[in-house]
Design a protein around this nucleic acid. Structure first.
Length: 188
DNA sequence: TGAATGATTTACT
DNA sequence: GTAAATCATTCAA
């Protein structure tokens, strides 16, 4: 599912305006066995509840005291699997995104990261558990991606062997794919 | 009730 | 390259 979502569209038809982005980077989180997932070990709390519900809903959470992250729940109720959308390429509403982000509309920093895209699209707490088929925030079929690459997931080094799984998918060469922490990437 | 921490971003050296 | 910002959630006491 993470791979399939790359190339599809994320749409938010918000009161303040329309924003559309083509997903260019996504990661799979496969609880309860995946140690990197919030639902690891079957941990079902108020925070992770959405992951245990029906697919096609939003799992939105807050991290580092300032950033929201957006996931799509992708498996049947009771199977807490989700896909984290890490980056999108702006398709519509670039000006609105720039206003929300407080930066120039031409910068890739508009949406090249999980926290950035949420700010650009105005995604936050109120979207927790939202049905992505019937709400103002939804997914739509997109043009696909030219070429998709995979790599280990970002920022989950604590997950032991699970951290090595190649469950991050992104469009090869796309400027909006998030930058990786240098230390992890082989430089030469 | 309190302490630790994170699926990050940004600014500064 | 390093560090600060900043708080909901989780877990232990």
């Amino acid at each position: 599912m993470a791979r399939a979502l790359v190339g599809q569209l994320l749409v938010h038809d918000a009161p303040g305006g329309l924003t559309v982005g083509r997903i260019v980077e996504a990661e799979a989180y496969r609880g309860p066995e995946d140690r990197a997932a919030h639902s690891y070990g079957g941990r079902r709390t108020a925070r992770t509840e959405a992951m245990f519900g029906p697919p096609g809903r939003a799992y939105v959470f807050f991290v580092y005291g300032m950033h929201w992250h957006f996931n799509v729940v992708v498996d049947a109720p009771g199977r807490p699997h989700a896909v984290l959308v890490r980056a999108v390429e702006p398709v519509r509403g670039r000006e609105l995104m720039a206003t929300r982000r407080g930066i120039d509309p031409d910068r890739v920093e508009l949406t090249n990261g999980p926290g950035k895209l949420c700010e650009a699209f105005g995604i936050a707490r109120e979207h927790y558990g939202a049905d992505l088929c019937t709400s103002s925030l939804f997914l739509a079929a997109g043009p696909g991606a030219t070429k998709i690459e995979k790599s280990p997931r970002i920022g989950i080094d604590y997950a032991g062997a699970w951290a090595e799984r190649p469950w991050r998918f992104f469009e090869t060469g796309n400027r909006y794919v998030s930058k990786r922490p240098r230390a992890k990437v082989g430089r030469r």
